[in-house]
């Protein structure tokens, strides 16, 4: 019976370990965009383009910048030709950053521009994108409705109905494994837990769950039948 119990424990831990090594670890190591904030969203269904003509700028208000806000991401439609140069200006009380994207993004491509991050979280900010080229450009936006935010989008100083979809990235390509600390800090926001407590819970899931299952199998395989 002892050998049977060992076989049960080994098979449970072995299957878990094999799946973790061959599926879990590659997942943790895969690179992907590391999102810092989505003050407005990119459209998941309906698209409302925000058109900016040469020399004009589109601005989005109500943005919070933080130490992890290192890149600005917007999606562009350039109507078949490469996108014009775009000047990005991020500002908030006590914070300002400017960057230039040289353009040349294909239609439906991502415009990702590095910006200097704020030293600490600061709200009430604005993000402006100025068309520094000679052709108009459309940015992806969302129409009014469930997806819209309290932010106001303006073009050439005038409010428009659509929300320009803005994402702030910590990195355009980072593995989840390298960002677990940030992820757990995000989880703790708006909850009565800290990032450290989420770390402890994560360790319990990765080690305690398979370990607990193996222990339960061990105990129950060797147990005598009840009367």
């Amino acid at each position: 019976m002892r050998r049977a119990a060992i076989a049960g424990v080994v098979s449970a831990l072995g299957v878990f370990l094999l799946l973790f090594l061959f599926k879990g670890l590659p997942y943790l190591q895969d690179g992907r965009e590391a999102i810092d904030a989505t003050p407005t969203v990119l459209p998941s269904a309906d698209l409302a383009p925000v058109t900016v003509r040469p020399g004009q700028q589109a601005c989005v208000s109500g943005i919070t910048y933080g130490p992890q806000s290192r890149y600005v991401l917007v999606e562009v439609r350039s109507g078949g030709h490469p996108s014009p140069p775009i000047v990005v200006r991020a500002s908030a009380p006590g914070y300002a950053a400017t960057a230039l994207h040289p353009g040349g993004i294909a239609d439906n491509g991502l415009l990702i521009v590095p910006i200097r991050p704020a030293s600490h979280a600061v709200g009430g900010g604005t993000l402006c994108l100025r068309n520094a080229g000679r052709v108009a450009i459309d940015f992806f936006g969302v129409p009014p409705g469930r997806s819209s935010s309290p932010s106001v989008t303006t073009v050439a100083g005038k409010p428009v109905t659509a929300d320009l979809g803005v994402t702030l990235l910590a990195s355009p390509n980072a593995s989840i494994g390298s960002r677990l600390g940030d992820v757990f800090d995000h989880v703790a926001a708006f909850r009565p837990v800290t990032g450290w407590e989420v770390w402890i819970l994560a360790l319990l899931v990765v080690l305690g769950v398979p370990g607990g299952i193996a222990f339960a199998l061990w105990r129950s395989t060797g147990a005598a039948p009840r009367e």
């Binding site: 904030a37 998941s44 919070t64 933080g66 709200g123 997806s147 926001a189």
Partner: peptide, 11 residues
């Protein structure tokens, strides 16, 4: 909306 994230800033 898979492209959206919840707020997590202290602000």
């Amino acid at each position: 909306n898979r492209t959206a994230r919840p707020p997590w800033s202290p602000v």
